[in-house]
Computed example of a mutant assay.
Amino acid sequence: MPVIQVNMIEGRSEKQKEALIQELTEACYKAISAPHESVRVLINEIPKKHYGIGGKTAEKLGR
């Protein structure tokens, strides 16, 4: 059972996250022939104030 973990800055819509789950599942199926129902995708959303880029928070950078 493949498990894919995604860490990303918060702020994407539910529709975008659903599309990401679908596309990652399909990519896993194509790459290693894993049955769709066996693929697990975990999305960890990081608050912008807890995500650092170049020494500054994403929040301060306006991301």
Rank of each mutant, 00 (worst) to 15 (best):
residue 1 M to I: 06
residue 2 P to N: 08
residue 2 P to Q: 04
residue 3 V to T: 15
residue 3 V to D: 07
residue 4 I to D: 02
residue 4 I to L: 09
residue 4 I to M: 00
residue 5 Q to R: 06
residue 6 V to G: 07
residue 6 V to K: 06
residue 6 V to C: 01
residue 7 N to G: 11
residue 8 M to R: 01
residue 9 I to M: 13
residue 9 I to P: 00
residue 10 E to Y: 03
residue 11 G to T: 04
residue 11 G to V: 03
residue 12 R to S: 05
residue 12 R to E: 08
residue 12 R to M: 12
residue 12 R to A: 01
residue 13 S to V: 11
residue 14 E to D: 15
residue 14 E to T: 13
residue 15 K to T: 10
residue 15 K to S: 15
residue 15 K to W: 01
residue 16 Q to N: 04
residue 16 Q to R: 14
residue 16 Q to V: 12
residue 16 Q to D: 02
residue 16 Q to K: 13
residue 17 K to R: 14
residue 18 E to P: 00
residue 19 A to P: 05
residue 19 A to G: 02
residue 19 A to D: 15
residue 20 L to M: 12
residue 21 I to Q: 04
residue 21 I to V: 13
residue 21 I to R: 08
residue 22 Q to G: 03
residue 22 Q to Y: 08
residue 23 E to K: 04
residue 23 E to R: 11
residue 24 L to N: 01
residue 24 L to D: 00
residue 25 T to F: 04
residue 25 T to G: 10
residue 25 T to A: 02
residue 26 E to N: 11
residue 26 E to R: 15
residue 26 E to P: 05
residue 26 E to I: 14
residue 27 A to M: 14
residue 27 A to L: 12
residue 27 A to S: 15
residue 28 C to V: 14
residue 28 C to Y: 09
residue 29 Y to Q: 14
residue 29 Y to P: 00
residue 29 Y to E: 04
residue 30 K to D: 09
residue 30 K to H: 04
residue 31 A to Q: 10
residue 31 A to H: 09
residue 31 A to Y: 07
residue 31 A to M: 11
residue 32 I to T: 12
residue 32 I to P: 05
residue 32 I to Q: 07
residue 32 I to W: 07
residue 33 S to I: 06
residue 34 A to N: 07
residue 35 P to S: 01
residue 36 H to N: 07
residue 36 H to E: 04
residue 36 H to S: 11
residue 36 H to K: 14
residue 37 E to H: 05
residue 38 S to I: 06
residue 38 S to H: 08
residue 38 S to M: 08
residue 38 S to P: 01
residue 38 S to N: 10
residue 39 V to C: 04
residue 39 V to K: 07
residue 40 R to I: 13
residue 41 V to G: 05
residue 43 I to C: 11
residue 44 N to T: 12
residue 44 N to V: 09
residue 45 E to Q: 08
residue 47 P to E: 12
residue 47 P to F: 08
residue 48 K to A: 14
residue 48 K to L: 12
residue 48 K to D: 05
residue 48 K to F: 03
residue 49 K to W: 13
residue 49 K to P: 00
residue 51 Y to H: 15
residue 51 Y to Q: 08
residue 52 G to Y: 05
residue 52 G to W: 10
residue 53 I to E: 06
residue 53 I to P: 05
residue 58 A to D: 10
residue 58 A to I: 13
residue 59 E to P: 02
residue 59 E to N: 10
residue 60 K to M: 10
residue 61 L to G: 10
residue 62 G to T: 07
residue 62 G to V: 02
residue 62 G to Q: 09
residue 62 G to L: 04
residue 63 R to W: 09
residue 63 R to K: 14
residue 63 R to V: 03
